[in-house]
Design a protein around this nucleic acid. Structure first.
Lengths: 141, 141
DNA sequence: CTCTTTACTTATCATTTGATAAGCAAACTA
DNA sequence: TAGTTTGCTTATCAAATGATAAGTAAAGAG
């Protein structure tokens, strides 16, 4: 197996993933939040509750900037903060009811686009895709 | 096959791809260019020669902003512009010698990280990965 | 009980990015 | 050939983002 051509395939693949993700999420983000804020909300949605440090790590932004964006999201009523009982320096963040509704709606629209995309596939093909995703996520990603 | 759980897997997968890509390219981008400019250079590198319009489409930025970034890259001596013979409104962009060297070096470093990542795999595993990438790129991405 | 570290905040500033308006020249169209 | 469209440029402005310095309070270490 030629590892160089595998690498080229890997590059082309990640570019495709990026492209497809862009198409599938285009126009989903509500007007009132920025791309960075939407990224944070997605992260909170799937991992809540999370601390500021976790957001900072996973979204690759400094603590001051993370703090600022969370403040803005709280001002917009999309997420909430509460002190961790086990360590009162830490702040847990979770979506507010409104934020949850917004993200549910966003994910719902993305899911319907996804379903559209895999609509024509047979059961066997879906299994194949499932297996391939599993394999790659387990071994490479 | 439960399509909803396939969707959840898809989301987790794209997040992983994004994460891995970020790790593999962290610190690769030279100091003197911005993230957006690096994205453009990557695109030029794999698709050259490209027109301004193509860059604008694929990088999802407006023509004025694309034009500005290309001007900056030309000022830095990283890419070149030449008029298309078949249509003198169009401008083809390609990497300059210096830009090519820079991108070769960048891709080289990414490749070595990639090789590191797949180092321990057997021939059979590499074939599996190869097949999975092919399948997904063909059917989904 | 000090000293240090950790988690986070506030304030500030520079840079990057996004968006819009206006213009130009080549190419196409009727 | 006049009018329109296409591909790109220049200029300008607002907003988002990134980076740094300085501070607070809780937790942990000696």
């Amino acid at each position: 197996m030629n590892k160089h051509s595998l690498f080229e395939q890997f590059i082309a693949f990640t570019a495709s993933v990026h492209q497809v993700k862009h198409e599938m999420t285009k126009g989903i983000k509500p007007e009132e939040i920025t791309p960075v804020q939407y990224g944070i909300l997605e992260y909170i949605a799937v991992s809540q509750p999370v601390t500021l440090s976790q957001i900072s790590d996973c979204q690759h932004m400094s603590m001051p900037n993370t703090s600022r964006e969370i403040r803005k999201l709280r001002e917009k009523g999309l997420c909430e903060k509460y002190m961790a009982e086990e360590d009162r320096r830490m702040q847990y963040i979770r979506l507010s009811r409104e934020g949850q509704t917004m993200m549910d709606e966003a994910f719902g629209r993305i899911e319907s686009r996804f379903l559209e995309r895999v609509k024509g596939f047979s059961e066997a093909e879906l299994e194949e895709i499932n297996a391939a995703l599993n394999l790659l996520q387990h071994k490479v990603f």
